[in-house]
Design a protein around this nucleic acid. Structure first.
Lengths: 117, 117
DNA sequence: TGCACATATCGACAAACATCGTTACGATGG
DNA sequence: CCATCGTAACGATGTTTGTCGATATGTGCA
């Protein structure tokens, strides 16, 4: 996208923005985290895990969410890939728990007050 | 999806989940907020606004994001609809600023420590 | 009034996504 | 070893979403 910059007379409406803006990579990484939570089913999963002090069996989410086993597995995968969940196999069951560190990182992201200077 | 429930011997792997789970409406509302931020361009917009103590002209975002005017307008609309941005027309320009109240609400959402009990 | 400009909206298109039935993988228990 | 059961992966399908060019709307200015 090449723009004709031969004249400078188009700068009229406002002052330059902050110089320390997010890079493409930072913005994409942040968006990926939010994307992992951008679904009601995944919000419920995180909520259920946040209110449980013990890992939760995958089978619990199926009735709790009212979705098929395949769909629940899909959502658990998305959250795990995003780093928000930890997966712990126990025999033939899979137990999931919140990655508290990732949750803290997420909390730091939206903690704007410090960013506001 | 009708399941044969004539016997109860399938309850074996874990204990019941917390009773105070999110409702469908709560989960959807929360997901909608995250969905608004689930895009790198929108993350950048919020970041730029968070680091500016004054409203920012819409035209600033076009070079900052490297996207077309139509696309930038689309993203600003999404964020505004989600309640995260405030739109203020000034003559033929449109100025945007962060809705600090909505940002605080978002911060409260991911502030898990209290939910962890 | 009419032109120039900033922004919003429309229509279209490709990519990503949620959902599910089915199948494959692994572990348990007889 | 075989049958069973829980979970993950595959393939398909309908929906949503990001992107852009073109057009419409609306404002300021000569």
């Amino acid at each position: 996208m090449v723009v004709d910059m031969t004249s400078l007379d188009l700068i009229a409406c406002c002052k330059p923005l902050a110089a320390d803006a997010l890079t493409d990579e930072e913005a994409s990484a942040t968006a990926a985290l939010f994307k992992a939570l951008a679904d009601p089913a995944r919000v419920k999963i995180v909520n259920l895990l946040a209110t449980s002090d013990e890992p939760v069996c995958a089978c619990e989410f199926i009735p709790a969410l009212g979705l098929s086993q395949a769909t629940v597995s899909h959502h658990l995968r998305k959250l795990t890939e995003a780093g928000l969940l930890e997966r712990e196999p126990r025999g033939k069951w899979a137990y999931f728990s919140l990655d508290r560190e990732a949750a803290a990182e997420l909390a730091g992201l939206v903690d704007l007050p410090e960013v506001v200077r």
